[in-house]
């Protein structure tokens, strides 16, 4: 079988795998954003209990491998509660909890990069904390954090490959299946790698456009004051 024939034959399976990888990434990342933002707001709260909950969560996730987290959720938790869980659900939970912890810190960094004077100005105008956070601080913080958010997105998209261990037929698992049939390790892993690369490259390009559009530089930040 020539390389071209190999591509032709494995294409449908690889595309199915890539589809699942994308689906897993998108759902997990959307949830991770919400979890991360929530955790970050708890973390910077003056309430010690809130802070401790968030910090504990971050410490646990950062301190353990994603592989262990995925096993724990898919096998451990399901055994403890005596209920089966679809692999996709377990995968989304593991990935979103994992990325959420890192994003929490990314958001916190963004918020702390916004000068304290911004919150003071907003509060001194009578805006409640929530309004000030939502309308004044977060829009600036997210702009600062875009490069790190994109970074985490790339990492999480690639981490979906780890989720293959709980039996999800995503891109990496499809690669293994094809190799099991064809014994063409060298070519198939290149193909799988190229597909991951294409996804990440697209995300990077997309984020560059987004960053440019949201940049404060378009709002005069790069011009000399008149």
């Amino acid at each position: 079988m020539s390389f071209l024939e190999l591509i032709q034959e494995s294409f449908p399976l690889l595309m199915m795998g890539m589809g699942l990888t994308l689906e897993l990434s998108v759902v997990a990342l959307l949830m991770a954003m919400l979890i991360g933002l929530g955790s970050c707001l708890l973390n910077i709260s003056k309430n010690r209990v809130f802070h401790a909950v968030s910090q504990g969560y971050i410490n646990i996730i950062r301190g353990t491998p994603l592989l262990v987290q995925a096993f724990f959720i898919y096998f451990g938790v399901t055994q403890a509660i005596g209920m089966r869980m679809p692999a996709f659900t377990a995968g989304v939970i593991a990935l979103s909890l994992n990325a959420g912890a890192y994003l929490s810190e990314v958001f916190r960094g963004g918020i702390q990069a916004v000068s304290a004077g911004q919150m003071e100005a907003a509060r001194s105008l009578g805006m409640p904390y929530r309004t000030a956070m939502l309308r004044i601080i977060l829009p600036q913080a997210l702009r600062v954090a875009i490069p790190s958010i994109v970074n985490q997105c790339c990492i999480t998209i690639k981490d979906t490959s780890i989720i293959s261990v709980i039996g999800l037929a995503e891109l990496t698992m499809r690669g293994q299946q094809i190799i099991a049939r064809t014994y063409r390790s060298f070519e198939v892993w290149i193909l799988v790698g190229v597909l991951y690369f294409i996804i990440i490259y697209a995300v990077t390009k997309l984020s560059q456009v987004m960053e440019k559009r949201l940049s404060l530089a378009n709002k005069g930040g790069d011009q000399e004051p008149s």
Partner: peptide
């Protein structure tokens, strides 16, 4: 309140 560093909202 008016601040030394203005603290206008840059966005």
């Amino acid at each position: 309140m008016v601040f030394q560093q203005f603290n206008l909202f840059p966005h």
